[in-house]
């Protein structure tokens, strides 16, 4: 038996919004540690690694590890039937061919449940090595979304250049070119508005804006995003999943393979 109850149900709605445009289907691997999902997009260019920690749920029961094969578009449609302030409970019997979502209003005066068929998925799991990145950039997630959106006007790719002075995002195309430079924040009252660069060595890499724009769908989960880069390895874009109190409930990490000069 698997059962997980999340009082701040809107977090699960946001998690689904952050992956549904990038992935068609994936397995939720449920264990005592929590719910994990790892999947590549259909082009095998990007990888999503998602964790919802068991102690982030108000109730969490997982008698034995199970893998729930899910059509993510269907799950997203069902979660849209939950109000933002609903409490969401996910339930699956061992060896079941369906999963149940229960939505309770805060006053408990409206309870709905939806059953969704599970899929048999032959999932490939990739080993993600622990990496010491040459640069880790932390910035407001809204700022990163805006940069990706604005530079998409100019081209398909963005060059991210990280030096000790700050970060430069550049794009060029038939229209012309554009550059956005962010300096490290000297003094910020609010931590979530800070731009912080932790740099061992300068890095310049090129990435597809189309994928980065998919990743920015996770911005409602977190006020800050971190971009971790090293030469010739995939970029890691991480949004931490925090509740209203700021406690960590997990993360959404996206890995994107770089583009190279033809």
């Amino acid at each position: 038996m698997f059962e997980a109850r999340l009082v701040e149900g809107s977090l699960l709605k946001k998690v689904m919004e952050s992956i549904k445009d990038l992935l068609n289907e994936a397995s939720w691997d449920c264990s005592g540690n929590g719910m994990c999902l790892q999947a590549m997009d259909s082009s095998h260019v990007a990888l999503v690694s998602l964790m919802l920690k068991s102690d982030g749920f108000e109730n969490y029961r997982c008698d034995r590890s199970i893998s729930l094969g899910i059509n993510l578009a269907s799950m997203s449609k069902i979660l849209k039937c939950a109000s933002n302030d609903d409490i969401i409970t996910i339930r699956a019997e061992d060896d079941a061919d369906a999963i149940t979502f229960m939505f309770e209003s805060p006053k408990q005066d409206r309870v709905s449940d939806y059953e969704m068929k599970l899929m048999n998925l032959d999932t490939e799991h990739l080993g993600i090595p622990d990496t010491e990145y040459a640069c880790v950039i932390k910035m407001p997630s809204g700022e990163f979304s805006r940069i990706c959106r604005d530079l998409s006007v100019l081209g398909d790719s963005v060059i991210i250049c990280c030096t000790k002075d700050g970060v430069r995002f550049s794009a060029k195309g038939d229209l012309g070119n554009g550059n956005i430079k962010l300096a490290q924040s000297a003094n910020v009252d609010k931590e979530e508005e800070a731009v912080v660069v932790d740099m061992r060595e300068a890095v310049t890499l090129t990435f597809s804006l189309r994928y980065l724009n998919f990743f920015t769908k996770a911005a409602p989960l977190s006020s800050q995003v971190s971009l971790s880069m090293s030469e010739d390895v995939p970029l890691m874009v991480e949004y931490k999943i925090n509740d209203k109190e700021g406690d960590s409930k997990g993360y959404v990490r996206y890995y994107l393979a770089p583009k190279i000069e033809d």
Partner: peptide, 14 residues
Amino acid sequence: FCDQIIIFNFFLDK
């Protein structure tokens, strides 16, 4: 013009 590398090249099959 740039070529997109696929992610398979970096991570190992488990």
